[in-house]
């Protein structure tokens, strides 16, 4: 067992008394890409929000780098090295690319470092640095969102539906970047509705259905289980 950077223990969460995540346990180790797969409404995004402190759990613990962080605010977690790229485009559309990157300096890195790291991974962003982010193409916007993950060198990276609305080729390119980030020792938790994209990049994965994790294993072990999960076999 390697060292776990992100651990969820018996996490339960819901909206207005209606529980949607019914006790989830997960361990993501250093340098690992962990994929959580499941159909619409399985509670994946809620789980992500709980891990990033955007939504309070009703029970259970969130542990980042061995420390229990229940009750922390999202900005405290962000400065402590946890980075969530939320569903949709995780960017500020009315700020320029450069100003978007500037927002990444709250975690401690200098602006020069942030820019250098971001442009090294996504050179296209450098050409567009003074452009308003809202006018970038979908893929470029997602690159900008990922650039935050590259630039702030977090310990834990949470990616929610990275592939949403993007061309398959672009998705492949983005996932290459994800694997490269993991190689630097970052623990990555990926949530995706479309399984194939993740299984290629993940080293470990779990299937989530109806607010519960029903199976954990390597991508190869899970492939057979997937159709059952999506078609309601569980």
């Amino acid at each position: 067992m390697g060292d776990a950077l992100l651990e969820l223990r018996g996490v339960r969460a819901g909206y207005g008394g209606i529980e949607v995540v019914h006790g989830v346990d997960l361990v993501v180790e250093r340098g690992q890409v962990f994929g959580v797969l499941g159909p619409n409404g399985a509670g994946k995004t809620t789980l992500m929000k709980v891990a990033a402190a955007l939504h309070p759990p009703t029970a259970g613990d969130v542990i980042v780098a061995g420390r229990r962080v229940n009750g922390a605010t999202p900005d405290q977690l962000a400065r402590a090295g946890l980075c969530l790229v939320p569903e949709g485009r995780g960017i500020f559309p009315n700020l320029s690319v450069r100003e978007n990157l500037w927002m990444n300096t709250y975690a401690g890195a200098s602006m020069a470092d942030v820019e250098a790291a971001a442009y090294a991974q996504f050179p296209r962003l450098k050409d567009r640095r003074n452009q308003t982010a809202g006018t970038l193409s979908g893929g470029e916007q997602q690159m900008l969102a990922l650039a935050r993950a590259v630039a702030t060198r977090p310990a834990v990276l949470l990616l929610d539906e990275l592939s949403m609305g993007l061309a398959p080729q672009l998705v492949e390119h983005l996932y290459d970047a994800v694997v490269a980030i993991a190689r630097q020792g970052v623990s990555i938790l990926v949530v995706e509705q479309f399984a194939k994209t993740v299984l290629g990049a993940a080293s470990q994965a779990a299937i989530m259905v109806g607010g519960r994790i029903v199976k954990v294993g390597t991508p190869a072990e899970l492939e057979d289980e997937l159709s059952a999960a999506y078609l309601g076999g569980h």
């Binding site: 955007l54 999202p74 900005d75 939320p86 995780g90 009315n94 700020l95 500037w102 709250y106």
Partner: peptide, 21 residues
């Protein structure tokens, strides 16, 4: 940066705090 963060909060407050602001 504070001013840029002010504008960032207009776009997406949750994302601004995910950035650590």
């Amino acid at each position: 940066r504070l001013g840029v963060a002010m504008r960032a909060c207009v776009d997406d407050r949750a994302l601004a705090s995910l950035n650590g602001a």
